[in-house]
Amino acid sequence: MPIIARNLIYNVISDAISEINDTRHENISVNELDNISLYGDSGVFDSMGLVNFLVLVEEKLDDKFNLVLSLTSERAVSRRISPFRNIVSLVDFIFEEIEPVAAS
């Protein structure tokens, strides 16, 4: 499996946010992804919105890179520090999940 650069993961996330923006009254800015809080008091998503966003990111990763990941796995949701608190932590988590897949 080819190594996927961080900027490509950011592009997938940006595409997912842009697609979600088509259904929202208040758009999420894709200009500064590192500053987006996904969930929590200052987050852009409620719990259902977060799940929909993560599923969309999974689908886009599969479509673009033939990469099948479960971002809502027990491994993700049981962490003491959530990988869903912001975009940077989500990208880091995706890379952690890619490593075992790339090694196989």
Results as ranks from 00 to 15, higher is better:
I9F: 03
I9W: 00
Y10F: 09
N11Q: 14
I13Y: 00
S14C: 08
S14A: 12
S14E: 13
S14V: 05
D15S: 05
D15G: 02
D15V: 03
D15H: 01
A16V: 01
A16P: 02
A16Y: 01
I17T: 03
S18E: 15
S18V: 02
S18H: 06
E19N: 11
E19K: 12
I20D: 09
N21P: 05
N21M: 12
D22T: 11
T23E: 14
T23S: 15
T23N: 07
H25V: 10
H25M: 14
E26F: 13
E26Y: 11
E26P: 00
E26V: 14
N27K: 15
N27E: 14
I28R: 03
I28V: 14
S29Q: 08
S29M: 08
S29V: 08
V30T: 15
V30K: 12
N31I: 07
N31D: 14
N31K: 14
N31G: 12
E32A: 12
E32N: 14
E32Q: 14
E32R: 11
L33M: 10
L33H: 04
L33D: 04
L33G: 05
D34P: 06
D34C: 01
D34L: 03
D34R: 10
D34V: 05
N35E: 12
N35P: 00
I36R: 04
S37Q: 15
S37H: 08
S37T: 13
S37D: 13
S37K: 13
L38N: 06
L38E: 04
L38Q: 04
L38T: 09
L38V: 06
Y39H: 12
Y39W: 09
Y39M: 09
Y39C: 07
G40K: 11
G40I: 07
D41H: 08
D41N: 13
S42V: 05
S42N: 15
S42K: 11
G43H: 02
V44N: 03
V44L: 06
F45A: 06
F45E: 10
F45Y: 10
F45S: 03
D46F: 00
S47H: 06
S47Y: 12
S47M: 11
S47Q: 10
S47E: 09
M48W: 07
M48Q: 07
M48V: 15
M48Y: 11
L50E: 05
V51W: 05
V51M: 14
N52S: 13
F53L: 07
L54T: 05
V55E: 02
V55M: 09
L56M: 13
L56H: 06
V57W: 00
V57D: 04
E58Q: 15
E58P: 02
E58R: 02
E59M: 11
E59H: 03
E59T: 14
K60C: 03
K60G: 02
L61N: 01
D62C: 08
D62S: 11
D63V: 06
K64G: 00
K64M: 09
F65I: 02
F65S: 06
F65M: 05
N66A: 15
N66S: 15
L67A: 05
L67K: 01
L67F: 05
V68F: 10
L69Y: 04
L69T: 05
S70A: 09
S70Q: 13
L71K: 04
L71W: 04
L71T: 01
L71Q: 04
L71N: 03
T72R: 09
S73W: 05
E74Q: 07
E74F: 11
E74P: 00
R75H: 10
R75V: 09
A76M: 04
A76T: 10
